[in-house]
Design a protein around this nucleic acid. Structure first.
Length: 320
DNA sequence: AAACACTGCAACCGCCCCAGG
DNA sequence: TCCTGGGGCGGTTGCAGTGTT
């Protein structure tokens, strides 16, 4: 038993003597995988005993769900996933498992870790609470549009590459944007949030080969784009721009009750939000972005620098 | 090269809910 | 109705790897 395991608080001393804690070994992983392959999952306490594992049922369940499950996706959180996490978190807060449902292959633990390590770090840099309205607004009107920008940039690069090698490929003026359980397209001709969604061009694939930023394998994205559209009314009949967390549940029933119309919210809510919270930073930052592009033209993968800029602006103005 | 600091993430905990007896 | 065990969830911890001094 590892030292951390020994140090952990445990009220049940008998269990503490019998049960193993700490990092899993390859042998244990093998036992768990083989047992589940034969007998299926569930009844984790008895599963642990029957599989010959000296682990708690909870430990087995966690190991399986967060690590051993075949469909667990590993690697960097992509820009699209970041965007989706920010959006969903703004809606649901720390409902990690619920958020994870909309990111296939990602576990609630992974999303939670991403939030704590990345998002909270940025909040700290901005010297504001991660749950404050200020930081939420920063995410909504700065960070998320910036992610969209970066996705669009990568997408444009991909399209350019495609154009160079194929015929009939339209240049993109849109990119995907996350909204609840869907990826939508975002028309970037006007380079500002709150525009009407455009039509996702199926040529707008981003691949690890042609992208200059860390992105998911192309199969992931094509899955997003090629899934049928559950809400023709909303999307005016366009297809191929929606994403479903569970391909077995494709259909209108997948739309959550609190379906989030991103474009309408942005159009209508900004003035109300500004009035409600006496926001004036949005105009400032939006003006700065459109006049000098200083906020948007910074290097990719340099969020720290970007947030430093935000921090400096905050320090100068007392707001954004 | 060593010491220290930072970061990412696997793993654990306590709490809660729910189904079944 | 109450009790109990299983399972799920969000929060927390601490190790290992990496970067910095």
């Amino acid at each position: 038993m590892d030292e951390r395991g020994r140090s952990l608080k445990n009220n049940n001393m008998e269990d503490d003597m019998d049960l193993k804690r700490g990092p899993w070994t390859a042998e244990e992983d093998c036992k768990l995988i083989n047992y589940i392959a034969t007998n299926g999952e569930g009844r984790w306490n008895s599963l642990s005993r029957c599989a010959g594992l000296q682990r708690t049922g909870k430990s087995c369940r966690l190991r399986w769900l967060n690590y051993l499950r075949p469909d667990v996706r590993r690697g960097n959180i992509t820009l699209e996933e970041q965007l989706l996490i920010l959006e969903l978190h703004s809606r649901w807060g720390n409902r990690w498992s619920k958020i994870a449902q909309y990111l296939p292959g990602r576990t609630d633990n992974e999303i939670k870790n991403y939030w704590r390590t990345r998002v909270q770090k940025h909040a700290k840099q901005l010297k504001c609470d991660v749950n404050s309205q200020q930081f939420k607004d920063t995410m909504k009107y700065l960070w998320m549009p910036r992610l969209v920008e970066r996705i669009q940039s990568a997408s444009a690069s991909a399209a350019a590459l495609t154009n160079a090698t194929t015929t009939g490929s339209a240049a993109t003026s849109s990119c995907i944007i996350a909204s609840n359980n869907q990826f939508m397209t975002y028309d970037y001709n006007n380079n500002s949030m709150g525009q009407q969604f455009g039509v996702m061009n199926n040529n707008d694939y981003i691949t690890p080969e042609n992208s200059s930023v860390a992105l998911s394998p192309v199969s992931d994205l094509t899955d997003y784009y090629n899934a049928p559209n559950p809400n023709p009314e909303y999307h005016s009949g366009q297809v191929g721009n929606s994403y479903y967390p569970d391909q077995n549940l494709v259909g209108p029933q997948m739309l959550p009750d609190d379906y989030f119309d991103y474009s309408r919210l942005l159009d209508e809510d900004v003035p109300a939000m500004q009035e409600q919270s006496n926001l004036n930073w949005f105009e400032n930052i939006n003006g700065a972005a459109s006049s000098s592009d200083s906020l948007w033209d910074i290097g990719e993968n340099d969020e720290d620098f970007w947030f430093l800029q935000q921090q400096q602006q905050f320090n100068n103005n007392g707001n954004f």
